[in-house]
């Protein structure tokens, strides 16, 4: 691709540049349009960083404190504490379980589309995935709250000892007391990120040269052997990229998760119990707190953490892909 652009540029330069070409207004305009994204990112980073650091600068909270598990942001509280650990842990746990559920299905689906599906099946499944992407997150949340949550609470209610009781936990109960839970959040998310992981993995599988497949099959291996020993290793970086992108989407999703996870601001204990995440806590508290109070500053710190997660994942994807190029 780069090669093509360069050749083209060279052709373009062959004519002697006239004054008009040197000023090249169109080039400036289109450059401005593209560069506006840099402007947006810088602005966004500046605002969220500045706002997110207020908790430390203005309110004098130490970095150590935000890593504590105690969330007591009410200024009237006797032991004021801005521990963000429950929210960070919740985000990590809910996202991790969602990936655990979604990755095998999504990678399987990508393999199906790229290796197994006949043309007609692909012509149905691919548009279906695009529609999946388009279903708004509030609709997923609504389905979660009207179907999934009641299903979980009634089907597994008290019957199965699923929870991992923690000593001193007042509300230690086996099974689902309520369907609003870590599992409900992860299930909703796992469906929402299927299209992301599938489409990126699909591209990775398609990028494996056809000759490799033919060669492998000519050696008499089965299709599954080819997939396992050839395709998956060759496309591994692409699949990893897909998982990282799915993770980013899951960690940043707000409304659908908030509707089903129960939002209990304590450390996650069991998949049958309510947990909270960074995004859901922001949704809960932002409207009730006022601008400039330490409580709201802590919410901005949470959004800064989210921003750091998403920017790091972009960097991570780049590192993964650079290694692929190098390999």
């Amino acid at each position: 691709m780069a090669q093509l652009t360069n050749t083209y540029r060279a052709t373009g330069l062959r004519a002697a540049p006239s004054l008009r070409q040197r000023i090249d207004l169109p080039r400036r305009v289109v450059f401005g349009a593209a560069a506006s994204m840099i402007f947006i990112v810088v602005l966004l980073l500046a605002f969220i960083t500045w706002q997110g650091l207020q908790l430390f600068i203005k309110d004098g909270v130490s970095i150590g404190q935000i890593l504590s598990p105690t969330w007591q942001p009410d200024s009237t509280s006797p032991n004021l504490s801005f521990g963000l650990l429950p929210f960070i842990a919740g985000t990590v746990y809910v996202t991790a379980l969602a990936l655990l559920i979604s990755t095998p299905v999504s990678v399987g689906l990508a393999l199906f589309l790229s290796e197994v599906a006949p043309g007609w099946a692909r012509a149905i499944v691919q548009p279906a995935l695009e529609i999946f992407v388009g279903i708004p997150s509030v609709v997923w949340g609504w389905l979660g709250i009207t179907i999934l949550v009641p299903f979980l609470s009634h089907t597994f209610h008290g019957g199965m000892v699923l929870s991992l009781p923690i000593a001193g936990d007042v509300f230690r109960v086996p099974g689902f007391l309520t369907g609003f839970s870590w599992l409900a959040g992860s299930l909703v998310l796992s469906i929402m990120i299927v299209p992301t992981i599938t489409s990126v993995s699909y591209d990775a599988f398609r990028a494996v040269p056809q000759e490799l497949r033919t060669g492998s099959l000519a050696l008499g291996t089965t299709r599954w052997q080819t997939i396992r020993h050839l395709l998956i290793p060759s496309a591994l970086t692409g699949v990893l990229t897909a998982i990282v992108l799915g993770m980013t989407r899951a960690a940043g999703e707000a409304l659908a998760v908030q509707m089903v996870i129960g939002n209990s601001p304590s450390m996650p204990a069991a998949i049958t119990q309510p947990v909270t995440t960074l995004t859901s806590q922001i949704t809960l508290d932002m409207g009730n707190t006022v601008f400039g109070e330490p409580w709201q500053d802590a919410l901005w710190t949470m959004s800064l953490v989210l921003l750091v997660i998403s920017i790091s994942s972009v960097v991570l994807v780049r590192v993964i892909n650079k290694r692929r190029m190098g390999a």
Partner: peptide, 10 residues
């Protein structure tokens, strides 16, 4: 890529 990855709530 960065803007695409930023959560919508942010």
């Amino acid at each position: 890529e960065a803007i695409s990855s930023v959560p919508s709530i942010v």
